[in-house]
Design a protein around this nucleic acid. Structure first.
Length: 265
DNA sequence: TACATATGATCAT
DNA sequence: TGATCCTATGTAA
């Protein structure tokens, strides 16, 4: 399940295994049948990630826009792959790889103008090349909402989701309920650097590990068991100081805060 | 069988 | 703020 790191990792893997040869495109579920028909036997030119969005560019000039939402997944198989499950929205079958797209929020051809509008709404993606944190800072400091709400707003920062929000704010001792406008430039710069680092690790690891391994006696991040990989997100106790973690809804999502490590202002 | 839950986002009110 | 969409899984009943 996807925050920005999942999308960037997918872009790499699918680029490696799908770009180049002709693909059989189908929609076993039927809902994307028209889209599949437009792409059938087509060849991918490139795949671009941005934030939580994936843009699959075909040599015909068409672009397939995919957003996984909360439950969306790509299942990967060695060709020819199994009989598709009835929920498969789109199957892309190539020489080296078969992928099934399940449960996305968006899976549709997008026109250039529409893509431009979408990108215009999105804030900078810390994983994108040549990204501009300045824009995130300008938007964040004008928000009247809590910083924990602002971080989930994709027009402020693209690619950050609920886990990274909880963990990055923890690392810097920031209470998620603090008004975004009270953040100092120094705090923002530190938060951006942390988020960018966490996202990059996420791409590399294929999962979200936010704790410093040495803090728990591990030499390598990869050795950390899943239940120990985070400081506060879905943790009953703060992994650093053992204080019970606060859980409360913020911007409609569960937020996590250590009352000791992230005191109110 | 039913219900709760999940790393998301949009639209109506 | 609440309803809604999309799917799979784990737990309770």
């Amino acid at each position: 399940m996807p925050e920005g790191h999942t999308i960037h990792r997918l872009a790499r893997e699918l680029t490696r295994d799908l770009v180049g040869g002709a693909l059989a495109v189908s929609s076993p579920q039927g809902r994307a049948a028209a889209t599949a028909a437009l792409l059938e036997r087509g060849t991918l030119a490139r795949i671009d990630p941005y934030g939580k969005h994936l843009f699959l560019r075909w040599k015909t000039g068409l672009t397939l826009h995919v957003h996984l939402g909360m439950y969306g997944k790509f299942h990967r198989f060695e060709p020819p792959g199994p009989e598709p499950r009835p929920t498969v929205r789109l199957r892309l079958a190539g020489e080296r790889l078969v992928v099934d797209l399940i449960g996305p929020t968006v899976c549709a051809i997008i026109e250039p103008g529409e893509e431009a509008r979408l990108r215009g709404r999105l804030g900078p993606d810390p994983l994108a090349r040549g990204t501009r944190p300045e824009l995130a800072w300008e938007r964040l400091r004008r928000r009247r909402t809590a910083v924990g709400a602002a971080l989930l707003d994709q027009s402020v920062l693209a690619g950050v989701g609920n886990v990274y929000r909880a963990e990055a704010l923890f690392v810097h001792g920031i209470d998620p309920c603090r008004p975004a406008s009270t953040l100092t430039r120094e705090e923002f710069d530190a938060l951006w650097a942390t988020l960018a680092g966490m996202l990059r690790h996420g791409v590399r690891d294929g999962r979200i590990i936010t704790v410093d391994p040495t803090e728990f006696g591990y030499r390598r991040r990869s050795r950390i068991p899943p239940e120990q990989a985070r400081y506060v997100y879905r943790q009953p106790f703060c992994r650093r100081c053992r204080t019970p973690v606060d859980r409360f809804l913020l911007a409609g999502r569960w937020a996590y805060r250590c009352p000791h490590c992230q005191p109110r202002l």
